[in-house]
Design a protein around this nucleic acid. Structure first.
Length: 454
RNA sequence: GGCCCCAUCGUCUAACGGUUAGGACGUGGCCCUCUCAAGGCCAAAAUACGGGUUCGAUUCCCGUUGGGGCUACCA
């Protein structure tokens, strides 16, 4: 076994196949790879496994890169493309052939029998198969523990297809050796593949890396995540208004635990806390409600400039953006954001709730108007309120509250009645942030004007 | 079917032979309160089952059941 105490030799890779978009399971694996590399000062390498020309596409590769970037998982090397390294695999296949570890097989696809080994040749056509040796293959997985299997349960698998393209097992092993990968961290769907690959390492005379297989992420119905579960693509979460910080924090805690009760993790904290020992052996069910909670937590705490950066495209999309929001109107815009933070679970919630404050015209919810109109003199009262505000020298929370409470007492109505009326007059709705916040967001001019015209 | 792996509240998980089995999401209640949220407090909620080993099992071993993965000239 190689000595892994020298952390400068830590090299991990994320090796997606561009036959689909980056799904949550892949993202979580990538996150663990990245975390492990960062934790030990190693290298995080990105490799695109596009040896299946039929099913791979460039758009998918682009999408995967985009998703990793969105998640903030920056790579140190790559992306390497297996489709550009075909010679390497052929050479390895040739070496295996020459060493007697492999043979040509002309059986029709799917029709291979062990008898084929007998006529095995080092030349000729067809696919190249690995000659699986007798014996027990065992290895220590860093998360699962000791695993062993009899090699006679493994078929002589294909190394090189008839067309000369390598299959997965050959290309991973060749690349992991060539790229000096020290730790293979990947999904548990690969544990059954590991013995085959170990046999290949041996046949190629290369030292073994450490293996760590992380459990799968299941959909809410406890079956494997798939399109049926709706949003399984990482980018679908961006579209839903999820912020990458939240998604990453949520993902980190799916199948991994720091061993403490801490749940909110900043980047550096997460890197420091991460270890293979904390990875669970059992599959985890994806819990959308918890993701939503994480998102709300982050939306509440994100620094203004980051929040605004995420929000800007959304506002532009909704036709609510104007550059003054970052300049002349910056103060009241930030006031609006503060008011909306605890009321938003997604980025869309900000936009949806911003209309009454950023829109030029106000739409009244008729039910809200009707409810407030039960107080017969509410309009007169609100007009009086407008007059009082007109002469208010200082427009802040304290002075506004003082004016409203004093007026309510004077008019012999409950303060809530006045506030409720003002809410509808100012926002058109029966729900909003605190009424004084609303007034400050709107500013004296708009506040007074809307009260008067109600 | 064969082989491999897994199993604590509904969900994510803590416990690494001795705890009233802890935390979080969600759920219910209360508080706060100008509405809605957020926030605070409280509550209900789990060791799959059966055998061992042990003074003592969530924890170690075996079996059962359940779940997942692999079994392609996919990755």
């Amino acid at each position: 076994m190689k000595n892994m105490t020298d952390t400068s030799s830590i090299r991990v890779r994320f090796a997606p196949s561009p036959t689909g978009y980056l799904h949550v399971g892949g993202a979580r694996t990538a996150l663990f790879d990245w975390l492990f590399a960062r934790r030990y000062g190693g290298a995080f390498i990105l490799r695109i496994e596009d040896t299946d020309v039929e099913r791979s596409s460039e758009e998918m590769t682009t999408g995967i890169l985009e998703a990793l970037t969105w998640l903030g998982l920056n790579w140190d090397e790559g992306p390497y493309y297996q489709s550009k390294r075909l010679d390497l695999y052929k050479q390895a296949g040739q070496r295996l052939l020459e060493g007697g570890h492999a043979y040509y097989c002309a059986c029709p696809a799917g029709g291979h029998t062990i008898a084929c080994r007998e006529q095995a040749s080092r030349e000729g056509g067809g696919a190249v198969r690995f000659r699986v040796p007798q014996g027990t293959v065992s290895f220590k997985d860093d998360v699962i523990g000791e695993i062993s299997i009899e090699s006679d349960t493994i078929e002589d698998f294909v190394l090189l297809r008839s067309d000369g393209h390598p299959t997965y097992h050959l290309s991973v092993v060749v690349d992991d050796i060539d790229m000096r990968i020290s730790h293979v961290i990947r999904g548990t769907d690969h544990v059954s593949n590991t013995p085959k690959q170990i046999l290949l390492y041996r046949a190629l005379g290369a030292p073994l890396p450490a293996f760590a297989h992380v459990p799968l992420i299941l959909g809410p119905d406890k079956t494997r995540m798939s399109k049926r579960h709706g949003a399984t693509s990482v980018m679908a979460y961006q579209e839903q208004g999820i912020v990458p910080e939240a998604f990453r924090n949520f993902l980190a805690l799916l199948g991994w635990s720091p061993g403490t009760d801490q749940e909110m993790f900043g980047d550096d904290e997460l890197i420091q806390a991460f270890s293979l020992q904390g990875i669970s052996k059992a599959n985890a069910v994806f819990n959308p409600e918890k993701l939503s909670w994480f998102n709300a937590q982050y939306l509440a705490k994100l620094p203004d400039h980051k929040l605004i950066a995420y929000l800007k495209p959304e506002f532009i999309n909704a036709g609510l953006w104007r550059d003054t929001l970052e300049n002349e109107e910056a103060d009241r815009f930030k006031l609006l954001l503060e008011a909306l933070r605890p009321r938003s679970k997604t980025l869309h919630d900000f936009v949806r709730q911003s209309r009454p404050y950023l829109g030029t015209t106000l739409e009244y919810d008729q039910a809200a108007v009707a409810k407030v109109s039960k107080e017969p003199q509410i309009r007169e009262h609100l007009h009086t309120l407008a007059d009082r505000l007109q002469s208010l020298p200082d427009f802040n929370h304290q002075t506004l509250e003082a004016v409203i409470r004093a007026l309510a007492e004077e008019l012999a109505v409950k303060p809530g009645t006045l506030m409720g009326g003002a809410r509808v007059a100012l926002t058109g709705l029966s729900v909003s942030p605190g009424i004084f916040e609303v007034m400050m967001i709107l500013g004296p001019e708009t506040t007074i004007q809307r009260l008067r015209t109600f």
